[in-house]
Amino acid sequence: MAELDTSQKGGKHKGKGGKRAKKMSTRVDLTPMVDLGFLLVTFFMLTTTFSKPSTMEIKWPPKDDKTEKKESPAVKQSTSFNVILDSNSVYYYSGMFSKDLKVEDIKEAEYAEGIRNVLFTEKKRRNNDIFVFIKALDAATYGRVVDMLDEINICEINKGNVFLVEPTDGEKALLKQRNK
């Protein structure tokens, strides 16, 4: 027939050179190997974690039991701004806490955009020279505190000017009056 016999079977063409070594094909069937390769690739692709969690870096001051009872660091009256976090809304007032502070001075804002706008205007009013005291009431959740810190980030307030402190009894009393 018209086919060329390329196979090495049969010793028909033994000829001049005597015995010739059988020429084996160097081709290997790679299909199983590829199969296995892709199987492993899929496995590793599915089990791997690429996403590292995103984080918010926070520095906390060292605990010093003796100074803790004192009011927070000395900051000018005009530059300080207080934020009190409750479960669903934020209370805020300017300046330091004093006996003269009235219930009307404490204002209320929503979380997220509400307090963000307040922070922006307060920051502008003080020419970026602002110290923020964040005071979380017991009713506030961790998520709310993170939200607040996040707003600080968004407003690009220097993190060194932000302090997380305890709300004072005076403030708590005023808030109670306010919410009557």
Binding site: K52, P53, S54, T55, M56, E57, Y142, G143, V146, D147, L149, D150, N153, I154
Partner: peptide
């Protein structure tokens, strides 16, 4: 909680 901060943890 959610935040805009995108620093990745090592």
């Amino acid at each position: 909680p959610k935040s805009v901060s995108d620093t990745l943890l090592q």
